Amino acid sequence: MKRTTRVTAAGAAIAATALLATACAAGGGNDGGSDDDGANAEGRIAVAYEGGISVLDPETLEVVDELETEEFTRLNAFGDGRTVAVTTSAGFQMLDTAEPTLTDVVFDASAAGHVVTHHGKTVLYDDGTGKTTILDTDVFADGYGETPEGESYTADAPHHGVSIVLEDGTLLTTVGDENSRSGAAALHEHGDHWDTEASNDTCPGIHGEGTAADEAVIFGCEDGALLYQAGEFTKFDAPDDYGRMGNAFVSDTSPIVVGDYKNDPDAEGYLLNAVTLIDTAAHTYEVVDLPDGVEYTFRDVARGPDDLAYILSTDGQIHVLDPESGEVTDAFPVVDAWEGPADWQDPHPAIKVDGDIAYVTEPAKNSVHKVDLTTGEVLQSVELDQTPNEMAVALG
């Protein structure tokens, strides 16, 4: 390792302030969650390509079906082990991977954004309106009929945001507008309005979300990270003036969050070579530089067996990172060496994990690989007719 920097929490809880916000009705019309609260039906792997989606059998990687869609779509597991939320120009369209079919269930959104699953709730966020839609994760257990209604909350101003609902009903949601984002608020619903129980405005550029053990929720900031736990916000300051974390990779059985890290706002491209390690129990924040030659993007980190982190690097290997020590303990080759994308939407290798198994895309070969993370063995590979881009794992 070239550098390890550890800092402790810089901020304390921010007192709750009162705020009334009108709750809007959910609109109607016709990545994997860890909560298997849903349909108990056999799901599959969804892989987006330009103009379509391939649905793969998780055991054999055989292409079960191909479905036409828009030129670029994003895929997020809905959390029920079957459904994938496909972000389109119309909003969030539900893909039934068991059928498989792109259903007529569409949650209207002018700019469909983040999808978050936690403790039996799936939350959709519309960047274009600032609207949060809260749904039961098992809402499609009886099929995909009319678009169901759910609870909703609309932010004071639209922004690129994210929301999550905790076990006690707390709605955590980002705060910002079309020009900037400043922090997050914890809300509770009271009749026809939402009250703010706590808030924090010390997280510039807030982006991304992850929930670790004991419902410790982390958001990324341009100068560190923001923790919400047990009713209080705590800010962690990065060791660099600009130290951006934009994505959190978590396990609900580990208090340690692995985040991406960028300390050069002018750097070209999307490759990163350092990670943040945030211990939400000890309230410590650490930046660890990865070994030379180990670089990755936001699509290339996942948590897996033993709560370890698995980083798919440009050298073609999956590097195994122990979050407790910050050390890379193993590596195994999976794909050929690759270069970072010119634009984040461009196809480049991605990793998704289900249990001990990783599914890895290799766009340069139009391929998808299935890897046993306990041994490093590539179990199956398939060559597609199209170039894979986004991927979601929806397994019951």
Score class of each variant (00 low, 15 high):
Glu71Thr: 15
Leu61Gly: 04
Leu95Phe: 10
Phe78Trp: 15
Pro58Thr: 06
Gly91Gln: 08
Asn76Phe: 12
Thr73Ala: 14
Val86Leu: 10
Arg82Phe: 07
Asp57Cys: 09
Thr69Gly: 03
Leu56Val: 01
Asp80Leu: 03
Thr73Asn: 13
Ala85Glu: 13
Leu75Tyr: 05
Glu59Cys: 03
Gly91Pro: 09
Arg82Cys: 06
Glu71Lys: 15
Phe78Tyr: 13
Pro58Arg: 12
Asn76Gln: 07
Gly91Phe: 04
Glu59His: 09
Leu67Gln: 04
Val84Trp: 06
Glu71Tyr: 12
Leu56Glu: 00
Asp80Gly: 00
Gly79Lys: 09
Gly79Tyr: 00
Leu56His: 02
Asp80Glu: 12
Val86Gly: 01
Ala77Asn: 14
Asn76Met: 06
Ala90Asp: 14
Asp80Tyr: 01
Arg74Cys: 08
Leu75Ala: 07
Thr83Arg: 03
Leu95Thr: 06
Arg82Gln: 15
Gln93Glu: 13
Val86Thr: 07
Val86Asn: 03
Val64Asp: 06
Asn76Ser: 14
Ala77Tyr: 00
Arg82Gly: 02
Glu68Phe: 02
Thr69Ile: 11
Arg82Ala: 05
Met94Gly: 00
Gly79Phe: 05
Ala90Thr: 11
Val84Cys: 07
Glu66Pro: 01
Thr87Tyr: 01
Gly81Asn: 06
Asn76Trp: 08
Ala90Tyr: 01
Pro58Met: 11
Ala85Lys: 04
Val86Tyr: 04
Leu61Cys: 12
Thr69Cys: 06
Phe78Asp: 07
Asn76His: 14
Thr88Asp: 10
Glu71Asp: 14
Val84Ala: 02
Asp65Leu: 12
Val63Glu: 10
Thr87Gly: 02
Glu59Phe: 06
Gln93Val: 07
Val64Cys: 11
Glu70Ser: 13
Thr83Gln: 05
Arg74Ala: 14
Val55Pro: 02
Leu67Thr: 08
Val55Thr: 08
Leu56Lys: 07
Ser89Glu: 12
Thr73Arg: 11
Val63Met: 08
Gly79Asp: 10
Leu61His: 10
Thr73Trp: 03
Thr88Cys: 03
Val63Trp: 11
Leu56Cys: 09
Ala77Pro: 05
Gly91Tyr: 05
Val84Asp: 02
Asp57Met: 08
Thr60Lys: 08
Asp57Ile: 07
